[in-house]
Amino acid sequence: MVNSWNANTLSDQPQAILKKYFTPQLAAALRADSKCAADNHDICALEYSPIWGVPDAGVGALGLKLDVGAKPGSVLVHYKVASTGRLVELRYQLVKLPVGWRIADIIYPGGVSLRSDLGIAE
Rank of each mutant, 00 (worst) to 15 (best):
N3E: 10
D12Q: 12
A38K: 06
S116R: 05
E47N: 14
Y108W: 00
V75M: 15
K20H: 15
A82H: 14
H78G: 13
L76R: 05
P109C: 05
G53Q: 06
G119H: 05
A121I: 08
S49V: 02
V54S: 06
K20V: 09
R31I: 14
K20I: 10
V88R: 08
V81S: 10
K19G: 13
G73Q: 10
K96Y: 05
A28M: 08
L94H: 11
N40M: 12
S11Q: 10
V2N: 09
I120N: 00
K96V: 12
D39V: 04
I103K: 03
Y92G: 05
Y92C: 01
A32G: 07
L64C: 09
K80R: 13
Q13R: 15
A27K: 12
P98I: 01
P109V: 04
L64G: 07
I106D: 11
A28V: 09
I17E: 11
L90K: 01
V75C: 15
N3I: 05
R115K: 13
G53W: 03
W101G: 07
Y108Q: 00
D42L: 02
S113I: 04
T23P: 05
A70L: 07
A37V: 01
N3F: 11
Y79T: 07
C36F: 02
L94W: 15
W5K: 07
A29Q: 01
P98M: 12
E47M: 03
S4L: 00
A37P: 03
G119D: 06
Y21M: 12
K65F: 12
G119A: 12
I43L: 00
G60A: 02
Q93F: 10
S11C: 04
H78S: 09
D105K: 08
L18W: 11
K96Q: 07
S113Y: 04
A38V: 01
P50W: 14
L18A: 11
I51W: 03
R115H: 08
L10N: 03
L87M: 15
E89W: 09
P14F: 06
I103D: 02
A121S: 08
I17N: 13
Y79I: 03
L94V: 15
L26F: 10
G69S: 14
N40C: 12
A29C: 01
D12V: 13
L118G: 08
S74L: 09
V2W: 04
L18N: 04
G58Q: 01
S49N: 08
K19V: 07
A28I: 11
G85I: 14
T23L: 07
D56G: 10
Q15E: 12
R91P: 07
A82C: 14
V2K: 08
I103A: 00
A70Y: 01
S113E: 03
P24R: 05
F22W: 00
I43S: 05
Q25I: 13
A27T: 09
A82S: 15
W52L: 06
L114Y: 01
G85E: 14
D67A: 04
K71Y: 11
V2G: 09
Y48P: 01
E89R: 12
G60K: 03
I107D: 03
Y108A: 00
D42K: 08
